[in-house]
Simulated scan of single mutants.
Amino acid sequence: MPDQSTPSTPQHPATGPGSVAARLTVVRDRIAAAAVAAGRDPGDVRLLVATKTQPPQAVLEALAAGVDLIGENRVQELVAKAPAVADRLAAGTLEVHMIGHLQRNKINQVLATATGLETLDSLDLAQAISDRCVRDGRTGDRALDVMVQVNVTGEESKSGIAPDDAGALATSVAALPGLRLTGFMTIGAHLDSSAEHRVRAGFARLRAVRDEVLASSAPGTESAGELSMGMTGDLELAIAEGATIVRVGTAVFGPRGTVPAPVRRE
């Protein structure tokens, strides 16, 4: 009998209007349509479901609907939800990315669960994570997937390194043991307060950073092709500019604070 303290993955997720499964279908359709409109293969764009503020049961409902990549903004939430997804992680059928700012004193907690980190923005942080990975024997095929976060808007409220400095940081990160540089991440300008062309320009700038790093052929940069950019409100613009991962939370779970419908159990 399963441990009642840890929710197990629902075998029969709710599928009615407003359910997580129904919302996921809409999001996936949006991604596919945006890719086709950009002349791209929809299979080249992955959906990362952002689980900020969501309870473990809502996350499990998303997994039951086929989600295999989730992202967490806060370390404490990552730790709290770890038991609920432990089986999927152990089986290798789920990736968990840290997509929020990481402080050095939280590294150990993140590495206990996360399979990837999208928010590297300094060499000091990268070195500290590398040291811990090496100490844990997490090297070679077990290296941690990491992305460099780039602040393409220049807004002080957003984390990330400046685009002009991102290439140098990326090549330095790529050379560190225990880390595998997989690409770049950014948070775009708010579409509500910016014209579409400004939002797209930011995404295009990240693509240019990525292309420059790949073209450098610096050691360890050959796998740095990912572009994690675009969220609920601007995923179409991001896909048009080459996003390979879009991070969506609100469109999957509803506005923050909304409690998903209970999951049927049979």
Rank of each mutant, 00 (worst) to 15 (best):
S8R: 07
S8A: 12
P10Y: 01
P13D: 05
P13C: 04
A14V: 08
G16L: 05
P17E: 06
S19F: 03
A21S: 15
R23F: 00
L24V: 08
V26M: 03
V27L: 08
R28P: 04
R30T: 05
A32P: 00
A34R: 10
A35P: 05
G39W: 06
P42Q: 13
R46D: 14
L47W: 05
A50R: 14
T51L: 08
K52Y: 07
T53N: 13
V59F: 02
A64P: 01
G66E: 08
D68F: 02
L69A: 11
E72F: 11
V75G: 09
Q76K: 03
P83I: 01
A86H: 12
V96T: 12
H101W: 02
L102Q: 09
R104L: 01
K106M: 11
I107W: 06
Q109P: 00
A112R: 15
T113N: 12
A114K: 14
L125W: 04
A126N: 05
A128W: 03
S130A: 11
C133Y: 04
D141Y: 01
D141I: 03
R142Q: 15
L144M: 10
V152Y: 03
T153K: 11
E155M: 05
S159N: 13
S159K: 10
G167H: 08
G167E: 15
A168N: 13
L169Q: 12
A170I: 06
G178M: 12
R180F: 02
M185F: 08
I187E: 08
A189T: 10
S193W: 07
R200Q: 10
R200C: 01
L206M: 13
L206R: 15
E212W: 00
A215Y: 09
A218H: 15
P219V: 06
G220Q: 04
T221F: 08
T221S: 15
S223G: 06
L227W: 03
L237T: 01
A238Q: 08
G242H: 05
A243M: 06
T244F: 05
I245R: 01
V246Q: 07
G249E: 05
G249I: 06
T250Y: 10
F253T: 03
G254Q: 10
R256D: 10
T258P: 07
P262W: 04
R265K: 13
